[in-house]
Design a protein around this nucleic acid. Structure first.
Length: 305
DNA sequence: GCGACAG
DNA sequence: ATCTTGTCGC
């Protein structure tokens, strides 16, 4: 794993890429407190503002992949004209093999709405799932899948939260900062924070800001000047959005997604990116395809031997 | 002591 | 996340 190119100043006390070889929380060489301070370093290193060389339109996907007949075949070679320099979006997801204590990570690279490459990796799991520390369980597997990928990502779409996190350093932030790539987090449920409005029964396309609550540590530069003229109590910072990516005409029961910046993307742009990447299903296409590929690899392993 | 929590 | 069949509704 290479260090962040754009962040030569960042020198974590412990190499986050070696965590997979550690054991359970108490004795993995990292106490829970150390993991949390590492996340504070990551949050400080992260950029929650747009630093991307493309627009949501550039990555828009208008046709959903048909997964009923298997996954679409990858076409690595540029189809022609406008293909060459189109942004590459990489969706990452995982499947698990509880009986083997292994994670199957999948990365799917998409360009112009078409799959150009599938990548995957099987990684032993070292620690259990702990709310707020998901990245220490699944981060290494995700990075392994990215290592297996030949394509160069322009955007990472991660399964889980980014800035919507107790220390504003969810797994999308971990991966984005470590690889210094724009990344967004897409979660199916809310870890922390408070939506501005109730999220139930919202129409497709609806979104509302999610602001930090008392469980979220404040980090980064202060918005105000600190002068006496500043408002005594400013609104809590927006750390992500609830986004209704899908809704049925009548029986409205689909829950919204909770999207948040991982790195080098603003919360507003994150919503626009996810909206552009959705094509009729609740999950954005990169995530859908990564999920399907992870399941495919898992089945091969379970059947293979 | 209870709550509350991505995958 | 995973263990798992059918079933209600567009």
């Amino acid at each position: 794993m290479s260090p962040p190119e754009r962040s030569p100043s960042w020198t974590p006390s412990v190499d986050p890429t070696s965590l997979a070889h550690s054991e359970f929380l108490p004795d993995l060489g990292l106490s829970r407190e150390e993991m949390e301070s590492l996340q504070r370093e990551l949050a400080a290193e992260a950029t929650f503002a747009d630093e991307i060389g493309f627009t949501p339109d550039d990555v828009a996907i208008d046709e959903a992949a048909d997964l009923s007949t298997g996954l679409p075949s990858p076409s690595p070679e540029p189809t022609g004209d406008l293909d060459a320099d189109a942004p590459v979006v990489v969706g990452i997801d995982q499947a698990f093999r509880p009986e083997h204590d292994e994670a199957v990570s999948a990365a799917v690279a998409i360009r112009n709405g078409r799959v150009i490459e599938y990548a995957d990796a099987v990684t032993p799991l070292s620690i259990p799932y702990v709310p707020g520390l998901l990245a220490f369980r699944e981060g290494e597997p995700m990075l392994a899948a990215l290592e297996d990928l030949a394509a160069t990502p322009d955007l990472l779409v991660c399964d889980g939260s980014g800035r919507i996190h107790f220390r504003q350093a969810g797994i999308a932030t971990h991966v984005g900062v470590i690889r210094d790539l724009p990344s967004v987090g897409v979660a199916k449920s809310l870890l922390c924070g408070e939506p501005d409005e109730p999220v139930a029964e919202r129409p497709e396309g609806w979104s509302t800001p999610v602001r930090a609550d008392d469980s979220v540590e404040r980090v980064g530069t202060t918005t105000g000047t600190g002068a006496a003229t500043d408002s005594p109590r400013t609104d809590p910072p927006v750390i992500g959005h609830a986004y209704q990516s899908r809704q049925y005409p009548n029986s409205r029961r689909v829950n919204p997604l909770y999207v948040s910046p991982g790195h080098r993307v603003s919360s507003e742009t994150t919503v626009e990116l996810v909206a552009a990447l959705c094509a009729g299903y609740k999950l954005p296409e990169p995530t859908r395809l990564a999920d399907a590929h992870a399941d495919r690899v898992k089945r091969r392993l379970d059947g293979g031997e």
